[in-house]
Amino acid sequence: MKKIRQPRRWEIWLWPLVTAALLLAVWQYSVLWTRTNVFPSPLGVWHGILGLSHEHVLWADIGASLRRVAVGFGAAVLVGIPLGLCLGWFPALHQVVNPVLEILRPISPIAWIPVAIVFFGVGDPAAIFLVFLGAFFPIVVACVGGVSSVPPLFRRAGRNFGLSNAQLLRRVVFPAALPQILIGLRIALGIGWLVVVAGEMIAVDSGLGYLVIDSRNSGKRYDLVVAAMLIIGIIGLILDAGFRTIERIRSVRWGFRHAV
């Protein structure tokens, strides 16, 4: 039978701390138990993080990764949103172009590395290109979905007020599709963050992905590997949270009341 009393408010803080503490304890214990001298303990990782943060290199790596994501994601937004809106607006066009997109979409951005290197050489532009590829397809798909799911009623209402095509797109269709587009952008940003790290492990020699692979290759510093992974996770989480606050802005919020 449902009790009326809800869990207490402070439990929302308590339980994550309990799980985190348990996880750390198990981790520490298994490191001690297996007597590994390669895999780091939580304490070792903590020292690794502290050590890294005193060095200039960590901040430079974070900056490099963020810059690549920003440029690649920005380019994907600039190209992907107009393309997606067009395809959503003209279903006939979408029908023609869609098979090509559907074949290109499942190709791992990482698989483009050889091609990216031919086009751009080894370096920043190649990594940015990979981020662009990773973010581009989810953005296009979200825009097509957003535009084509705008109720026809809205379009008719807009026409009724004598809006031109361009006005209709700007003042009715885009705002109506915005909630779904923003979700797509957030997913695309997450993918961009996954891809930049992967790309940096292969194609360049700076950034957090490079930090991971370099810490392993130059002297098996697994404490730094795990430290870098945690930093990647936390920055990814912050990016995601930042984007969610945009979704919470009033003028776009209407779409989220029922969705998810």
Binding site: L23, F39, A198, M201, I232, G233, L239
Partner: peptide
């Protein structure tokens, strides 16, 4: 269970944005 979600969600949110490829060193180890 609501408490279950509270307990694990923050951890999952930290692990999720880590590129699976960043696990390569650990996988090989």
């Amino acid at each position: 269970y609501r408490r279950g979600e509270w307990a694990f969600n923050p951890l999952v949110q930290v692990f999720r944005p880590i590129s699976p490829l960043a696990w390569i060193p650990i996988a090989i180890l």
